[in-house]
Computed example of a mutant assay.
Amino acid sequence: MTTEESIVVDVPVRTVYNQWTQFEDFPRFMSGVERVVQVDDTHNHWVTNIGGVRREFDTRITEQRPDERIAWTTEEGEVRQAGVVTFHRLDETHTKVLVQLDMEPEGVAEAAAEKLDLVGKQTSADLRKFKAFIEARGTETGAWREEVDRPQP
């Protein structure tokens, strides 16, 4: 299952990127995300509850470039996914955020969600909530601006 959604946010790319690196704040604008614990610079533990289906899984950031992109993949847990968020500076005060997500359905609920494009609809709704969150604040809650490179084969 693949989804791609985007939104234009009325704040500078640096602010948008900085906020997106605050993974533990994701429950503030992502439906179904109960908790994200940042284990270290490249690992996060997620607890989600979507449609009554509770899942826990770990992700690893595979690539991170300030103001440009963050890519990740799952490592352990009940969810198999990989994705990338890219940040596109449109001008001094506008940024396009593009989310690309690939998921492997794990059960009946996920298979049904795929057929109804529920992941795409939820991603779009979460991006709208992120836009409202960051535009209302006008500033990020924190930042992590280091780079992470993809491991070489």
Rank of each mutant, 00 (worst) to 15 (best):
G83I: 05
V99S: 07
L90P: 06
E78G: 15
F87D: 00
D67R: 09
Q81P: 04
G77A: 10
E63P: 06
K96F: 05
E104K: 15
E92K: 10
V99W: 06
T73Q: 13
D91K: 02
E78A: 15
Q64A: 12
V84I: 13
E75V: 13
F87H: 08
A82T: 15
D67H: 12
E75T: 14
Q100E: 13
D67E: 13
A71Q: 07
R69F: 00
E63C: 08
T74K: 03
Q64Y: 02
V85W: 02
W72R: 00
Q100M: 11
T73C: 10
R89G: 01
E75C: 06
R69D: 03
D67Q: 11
I70N: 00
R89Q: 05
L101F: 01
Q64I: 03
G83N: 03
Q100F: 03
E63A: 12
R65D: 15
M103E: 09
T74P: 05
A71M: 04
G77Q: 07
R80Y: 14
E78C: 11
Q81C: 09
V84N: 02
W72D: 00
Q64L: 08
P66R: 03
Q64G: 08
T93W: 08
W72T: 00
D102Q: 13
T74Q: 03
V79E: 08
G77D: 06
W72Q: 01
Q81L: 13
R69W: 00
I70L: 08
T95R: 06
P66S: 09
L90A: 07
Q81Y: 06
V85M: 07
V79T: 10
I70K: 01
V99R: 04
V99N: 04
E68N: 07
V99A: 11
R65L: 12
T95Q: 05
D102K: 12
M103I: 14
A82G: 14
A71G: 02
R80I: 14
T73H: 11
M103S: 13
D67M: 06
G77H: 07
